[in-house]
Design a protein around this nucleic acid. Structure first.
Ligand SMILES: [Zn+2]
Ligand SMILES: [Zn+2]
Ligand SMILES: [Zn+2]
Ligand SMILES: [Zn+2]
Lengths: 132, 132
DNA sequence: ATCGCACACGTTATAGCATAACGCAATTGA
DNA sequence: TCAATTGCGTTATGCTATAACGTGTGCGAT
């Protein structure tokens, strides 16, 4: 999915996520955009829907939050499953890819004739700084 | 985490999940237990909290639902990460373990000195029957 | 031009998921 | 017996997400 020019709302939501130092909930994004005219959750969710579609934002299922893609130059959709390590103390998120993991999971799904559409890998724990 | 004898509420919730043919939301469980005296979400959530702790129930983060463990005899906590394939059409869930995936992810976290506490792997898509 | 369509947007209302805070009762172990 | 723990019930609240309706704008087809 290639990213066309963003609309005003999409650009605002994306900018908030880019500037944030960690994942944000949709309602936190809403609060940060009230000064820019945002009044309702749908304005955020509709923008997020497109940004997710374009692959420039990821959703963290285990914490109901959203982050800007850490690899803006590449196309995250193109090199397999995206995995996340989420620090439960400081909120920092690391995004990575592992082809070997992708292949193992794909082998499993092929064996079961399961047609995978979207795969979530999220590791919650403590980052190096917080584990000390 | 070994499972002690379940309390009445825990047993009721577990029974509902065992009998279900797919994952259930907490509120669905609540509805199915109204005849047994359940009136409030907390009765379900408190039971689920314990069942998750004992490892006899799993939470599916990507769909906010719960399933009974598919390997009741074994101890799911003891052999690594649990992964799920969830059919978005019929709701059927397959639970599996893959040590190779575990090792790859553990290698990554070791490399980053990230202390993993809980890892989620969920594949959404279509099961063999539904993909036809 | 103007019609029809697609799309973004704004607003209100509602649905769905989860926890806080209080109080009570039963159990247990010092 | 007393204190601590645990489970339980209830009410209220907060957080997450979508339904439904209407408006305006751009753009190609007629
Ligand atoms: Zn990415
Ligand atoms: Zn941290
Ligand atoms: Zn299990
Ligand atoms: Zn299916």
């Amino acid at each position: 999915m290639n990213a066309p020019a963003l609309t005003k709302n999409q650009a605002l939501v994306f900018e908030v996520l880019e500037k944030a130092d960690g994942p944000l909930s949709a309602y936190t994004i809403l609060d940060r955009l009230r000064d820019h005219g945002f009044r309702a959750p749908l304005q955020v969710y509709r923008a997020l829907e497109k940004l997710l579609e374009y692959g420039v934002v990821h959703r963290l299922e285990s914490i109901n939050a959203f982050v800007a893609c850490a690899h803006p130059d590449q196309n995250c959709h193109s090199h397999g499953i995206v995995a996340f390590a989420i620090c439960e103390s400081c909120g920092h998120v690391m995004e990575f890819h592992d082809h070997e993991v992708d292949h193992r999971l794909m082998d499993w799904t092929r064996g079961k004739k399961f047609k995978a559409e979207k795969t979530t890998i999220e590791i919650r724990g403590l980052c190096e700084a917080c584990a000390a």
